[in-house]
Each structure stands twice: as C-alpha cells, then as structure tokens.
Design a protein around this nucleic acid. Structure first.
Lengths: 367, 367
DNA sequence: GTTATCTTTGTGGGCGCTAACAGGCAAACG
DNA sequence: CGTTTGCCTGTTAGCGCCCACAAAGATAAC
C-alpha cells in the first residue's frame, strides 16, 4: 500500500478536489470565496465540501500565507474586573472577524517579562498583540516594540507612538467633581491608584487640575494598589488624618468600596458624613450599601475597538476606530451635601494621632 | 536573484543549518533537545541559533506533527468572577507546559452554539478543549463530544463521562450550615442559582439534604441568575414572604450581596435580624458591609488542574490531577445568632401582602 | 581481523495549503 | 476574420518543519 491506513484522518482539499472532479486550487478558490469560479463548478465543490465535512487546516494556511488570524494578549493579570471586561470585548470582536485570541500570562510586571512575552509572540503564531499591562513601564520599552508586529497598548495613557486603546476619564470624572461642588463640597480628596499606572496618573491629574482650576485645596492623595483591601487601609488613614474632608473621589470602585468599609468601621456615615465617588461602575457598585456613585465607562467597547485598531493596522479593516471611548458620571446614593458648612480653607487644623474610628459630627441627611 | 528580496524574514532552520555547517535535521534535533548529537556540533548549532535569533515556526511544526500545543476554551461568558479565576488558572498552567490558550466566545448558551464552537475547534488548531459552559445542556450533547478531541467540562457536575473539573462544595457548605445551626438558626433558606446550572443544583441539593437530614424545615428556594441584581430581587421577595427565616444561604456571593442590599432597603439588619452566607469568596466579600461569611474555594486551582487533566489525556503528563478541589467555610460578620428563640417549625404563619420593607423585630447583636 | 552494534549525520518525502503563472476557451473588438 | 480581452481552470513551486530511513564512521564483540 502506498498510503498507510490512517484512522480518522480529516478530509483535505485534495480529497474534496477528487470528489468534485476539479483541482485543489479550485477548491481553494471556493473555500476562500474568490471569484472566477463557474457557478456549476462552485456548486459541485460545495457539495463535496459538505459531504466530506471539510475543515481547512489552519496550520497549513498559516504556513503558506504567513498569517495566523490570531491576536495575542499579554495581560499582567486577570484579577481586575476592568481587564476582564476588555478581554471579553476583544473575544467578541475577534470572533466577528474570524480571528482567535491567544493568552499569555505575565506573572511579574517587569520589563523583562513583558519583552519576553512579546518576542515569544513575535515568532509564535500571532499577527498582532494587545498589551494589557497598565503600567508606566511599557513606556520605557524600545519602540517599535517588535518590528513588524502591530501592538496596541490598552490604557497606556501617554505613550507617544500610535493610538492607545483607552477610555477617556475626563467627561465622567469632571462631571463627578462638578456634582460634588454643586452639592457644596470644598474639601474633595482623592484615593489614587498605584504610582506606576498611567491610568491612575490620568485620573489623579484630572482631579488635581479640576481643584486647582477652581482655586480649591489640593491635599496630596493617598496611594492604593486598586484593591479593596488597600482602599480600606488608605480610607482608614484618610479618615484618621484628614477630618476636614467631606468628599472622596476614589481611583476605582474597589478602592471606593474599601473606603466605604473603612467608614463603617470608623462610624462615619456615607453619604451623610462623607461623600464617596468610585470609578468603573463594577457590578457590585449598583447594589452596595450605599449604592455607589461612580464613573461609568464601557471597557468592553475598549476591547472591541482595540481589536479593530489592530485589524486596521494589519490592513484587514479599512477604518481605524475612534479613540478614546467616553465616560459618564452615574450619581447614586454615596454622594450628598456635606455635613456642615465647609470650613474656610485654612491649614493646621489636623488632628494627629487621634483614635481611629473617632465618630465625627453627624447630621441627618437633607436632600 | 533566486530569492526575491524579503524584508525582515525570520531565520529558518535552513539558515541556522547553513551557519552551523550542518543539515537542517541536525538543527531540528538540537532544537527539540533530542539525543545523538555530538556535543561539539550541538554547541555550534546553539551558537547559530542564538546569533540568528531563531524561533521555530509553530505553523510548520503543527503542519508536520499534527499537534498544535494549544488548548481551546469555550466560555459562555467572562462576566462571572468564577469563570475568570478558572481562566486565569488555566493561563498560568498552560504556560508552564509551553502550551497556549485560545478563547472562543459563546454568546448564546444554546446546544447549537456549543457544538458549533466545538466542531470549529475540532479542525481548527486545538489539541483539547475546556468547556466552560456551566449548564445542564452540556449533558445532552452526544458523547464523546468530538471524536479524538479530549474535552474537560468545568463544573459540569453530574456528567457521567470522565472526570469533571470542579470544586467540591460539600465541605464548605456543610460547615456553613453547621455553623448556622450551632448559632441557633432553624429556619435556613436558600437563594438558588439558575435552574439549568449543574453547579447551582449541586449547592441546592447539599442545602436541602442537610436540612432534611436534621429534620428541619425546607422551604423551596427562590431562583436567581447568579447576579447581584437578581439576588436583590429574590432577596426582597424572600423578606416579604418569609418573615420566619433567620438565615439565608445564597448560591453565590453576588446573590448574597444583593440580598444584603435588599435587607438594607427593607430595614432588616444583617446579621442582627438575618444571617447571610455567600459562596465563592469574591474579593468584595471581605470588605462588604457587613463582611460576608462565605464558602471559599480555589477556582484558580480548578483551572490549573483542568489543564493538567487535558495534558494527561493527551499523553503529555503521566498523572491525572485529583478531583475535586476542596472548599472551606469562612465565617465573617454576616452571620450571628438569630434575633429571637426560633419559632417551632409550624406552618401557616406567613404574612401575605405585608408591606415590603416592614421592619422586623430587632435586637442588638450579642456575641 | 572480521562482523555486529552503536553513534552521528544527512537525504528524501510529505504535512495541507496558497501564490504565481500558464493555458484554454468564449466573447468582444477592430 | 484575426486579435484582444476577460473568465475559468490547472500546474508548479514552495511555506518550515518532522518523520523514516540510509549512510557513514566509531566502537565493541568474537
């Protein structure tokens, strides 16, 4: 026998061609929906395709074309809800165009790990890459990241080269600040994200700019790592050291929720004693006690557009998507007027080493 | 010129072979770390590999070997935190073995969509598949799902064929129930997950079995879709229709948190008036107000083992991982003794059409 | 010293597909 | 009526790698 007996070998183009009485090339044309095939021939080929249950071998296609129809994702971690939403949006969009998504984990958020993941992708079956490393360190990577490999950085605010896939915190955050000021707040603090995060920096500077623009007090923000636990810790410290604050804008919802917890621990009522604003509008924000006023942005859309951006860079899509994706403020229950007429912005009024959890002046909420 | 000038073509084995003065086959042997290569030759090849920055072409390898070193993931949606953790664990484990993960979305949780995703994977560059569709419908798919394609169903409790990748809710859930009974609760209700979810069924039956085993009252659980919103709705209804309940075990944390919100809306204090137990121990459970007592299980580990299971099925790993992954109860603040001596289990004491939000007998918490 | 065995290396073929080109044929044009 | 143009189809030559086998030399066995 010429061909050894193989169990369950999938039908190849040759098999289909044989059955339809045409050449493999014609089958290829039909499969790829290319012109210059006689309708009758096409019908015969389609029948053979169907009958044999033909599925093209992606490895062979990739080998012949040099294209993989795959987009790689380098994500520092899937633990933040935001990253997941972006990923979900990418999955969705990618499927729409017949592409696949390949995940590469990145345990350590170091430069070496990133460029290693990048180069491993470079030669390894990926046409483009989404860099989901929200950290300033991406800036220090040499550009272009990988020659000939389109890369889009998600939320890499401030990178000079090319568009970055991100949502614009300005509309929502500014609306939130305006809302707080309209309510009567003059002491609006910030619980910032990690120092090396471009996203965190963006939100922080928006907050700072707004306050200085109105000539209001800017107290250096406490730093968190985006987590609820660090929000709790930073929140407790803020309550202890800065009793003048009547409102806090947190870097994200988890931090805001941690702060709410810190308030509960300290006997500070939200929103009666302290107004809290989050960022992201995670699912839980809408059902938390109290329901969290927050800034909403469509991270799934960011993921979708990131894919479209890459597909455009690859010449698959004629149009690049617009950037950035907008955001909006969603007022809920965690914001209210300040408890008492705001003290005139004068310094030196801090209690140091007061007991944590000291209850502060409370008055019933009036709306 | 024979070869047209190409920009930036990656080095192939032939290029490496030429530089090292050997044949491509020898390079292949070195690259794949196979024996029967002279140490000196190996060194020369390694040098050439390094110098040319060689990376093997995965498409060519796959074409030649028929293996893809890739595991496909069919996930109904990434919106539940649990699914994300499992995915994260898989990503981690897969990387450890030099495999990749490919994502396939599944918008509609229908039989057709699942088998379509499955067959599309079958011919399309994947050695094995993780089915992350937590729904009974998977049971009704014909077995084997795809001939010659190892498949592992995550949390597909009750499927007869092969091991399913899951955690065992029993230890944690039973400990939680015991904890509630020890506290003095006799009216323990359940807010169940969706009816077509095997996971939800498992938890529900564990709850029911425990109660009937002790001769306690079993009130049919209200149904949710895992979301906080549905937990809020079901929670409100439970508070309205079942005032005898002193404790509720929710299908997951989101539902539990929704219930807590419903309590806040209705003026019911947690845990003073009602004890609440969640399931999953999501990040927010630990900082919620009150901190949620919940059942913790290592979903990342489930993901890791799912991959190892598949790798074992493929003959890559000699040992299959143990199943299931255990769970444990984490008591926190949302559970306390019932507000008053539990009424004797007698029926006919329901208030119908009482006002939602009617405050119920409260007493200060005593621990 | 001769034969068997092992190690080291190379050769040819093929995985399934596509790109580029080459014909054949019909219609359109001058 | 010859030629150009367009459509349809097939041929050839790889893409980069791995498998089976062959061939050489080195070593061991007798």
């Amino acid at each position: 026998m010429v061909n050894p007996h193989r169990v369950h070998r999938a039908a190849s183009m040759i098999d289909v061609a044989r059955r339809a009485g045409v050449s493999a090339q014609t089958v290829s044309r039909v499969v790829n929906d290319r012109p210059h095939v006689d309708p009758a021939t096409r019908a015969r080929v389609l029948e053979a395709l169907e009958h044999l249950g033909y599925r093209r071998n992606p490895a062979a296609v990739s080998l012949a074309t040099g294209r993989y129809r795959t987009i790689g994702v380098v994500a520092s971690t899937l633990t933040t809800h935001g990253a997941v939403l972006v990923l979900d949006g990418m999955t969705e969009e990618v499927a729409r165009h017949g592409y696949s998504l390949t995940l590469s984990p990145l345990r350590a958020p170091t430069l070496g790990a990133v460029s290693e993941a990048l180069t491993s992708f470079a030669g390894a079956g990926v046409d483009a890459v989404v860099l989901g490393v929200e950290s300033e360190l991406v800036r220090s990577l040499p550009r272009p990241l990988v020659p000939g490999l389109p890369v889009v950085v998600v939320d890499g605010a401030g990178t000079t080269e090319g568009p970055t896939a991100e949502s614009d915190p300005a509309p929502g955050l500014l609306a939130a600040m305006t809302h707080l000021l309209d309510l009567g707040h003059r002491q609006v603090r910030h619980l910032a994200g990690p120092p090396d995060s471009a996203t965190a920096a963006r939100r922080r500077e928006l907050w700072r700019g707004f306050l200085t623009g109105r000539g209001l007090d800017v107290v250096e923000p406490l730093v968190t790592d985006w987590s609820a636990a660090s929000g709790l810790a930073a929140g407790a410290e803020l309550l202890r050291t800065d009793p003048a604050a009547t409102a806090v804008v947190a870097a994200n919802d988890q931090v805001a929720l941690g702060l709410v917890r810190a308030c509960a621990d300290a006997g500070v009522r939200v929103p009666d004693d302290l107004s809290v604003v989050g960022f992201d509008d995670v699912e839980h924000a809408g059902v938390a006690v109290p329901r969290l006023s927050t800034v909403q942005h469509d991270l799934r859309e960011v993921g979708r557009r990131a894919v479209r951006q890459l597909l455009h860079d690859l010449g698959v899509l004629p149009q690049a998507p617009p950037w950035p994706v907008p955001s909006a403020f969603v007022p809920r229950e965690s914001t209210a007027p300040p408890p008492s007429p705001p003290p005139s912005p004068r310094a030196g009024q801090q209690w140091s080493n007061s007991y944590p959890g000291t209850p502060r002046g409370s008055r019933s909420r009036s709306r």
